[in-house]
């Protein structure tokens, strides 16, 4: 079996929503260059709906694919729904990731949550801290 599923390779070769949103409503960056993965998510939010999303990623094939599919999964969705996106759902949408690459899907989930947190804070929207992970890079610490 190949290292990655066809789905991973498709999102790696043709990543969706790559780029920057200059006037983003929320920006989240997670990961660490030392670990070899950084993901940055830009959100445009209108009336509680994610109307646009872009990403930039420094990382391996599965990191790029995870970011790509994660942006597809939340685009056009209410922020509340994006908040429920799990790393497992990201990995499943890619038809699975090798065990040692699962952290890429974790980064994707965290990057989206970090961007939403940024949106909440910029707009003074109250939130429950428990909904947000600590965004720590576990294998570096």
């Amino acid at each position: 079996m190949a290292l990655y599923s066809e789905k991973v390779m498709d999102h790696f070769r043709n990543p969706r929503n790559v780029g920057v949103i200059e006037d983003a409503d929320g920006v989240g960056e997670v990961g660490n260059a030392k670990c070899g993965d950084i993901m940055k998510i830009y959100l445009k939010i209108n009336g509680g709906i994610i109307t646009d999303v872009k990403f930039e990623t420094f990382g391996c094939g599965s990191a790029i694919a995870s970011s790509s599919i994660a942006t597809e999964l939340i685009k056009g969705k209410p922020v509340s729904e994006a908040m429920t996106l799990t790393n497992k759902a990201v990995a499943e949408a890619l038809d699975g990731l090798p065990a040692y690459k699962m952290h890429c899907s974790v980064l994707a989930e965290e990057a989206i949550k970090a961007a939403i947190l940024d949106y909440y804070e910029k707009n003074g929207i109250p939130y429950d801290e428990k909904d947000f992970p600590s965004f720590s890079c576990e294998h570096c610490d």
């Binding site: 290292l3 390779m9 790696f12 070769r13 070899g36 993965d37 420094f58 990382g59 391996c60 094939g61 990191a63 790029i64 090798p98 040692y100």
Partner: peptide, 26 residues
């Protein structure tokens, strides 16, 4: 940049190379 992405893209161009990045070796 990260080495594994570079290797995968080179492979798509017919180039077999390798990386010092142990990312590829698990």
């Amino acid at each position: 940049i990260e080495g594994e992405s570079l290797l995968l893209m080179l492979s798509d161009q017919g180039i077999a190379a390798s990386s010092g990045s142990a990312c590829t070796s698990g």
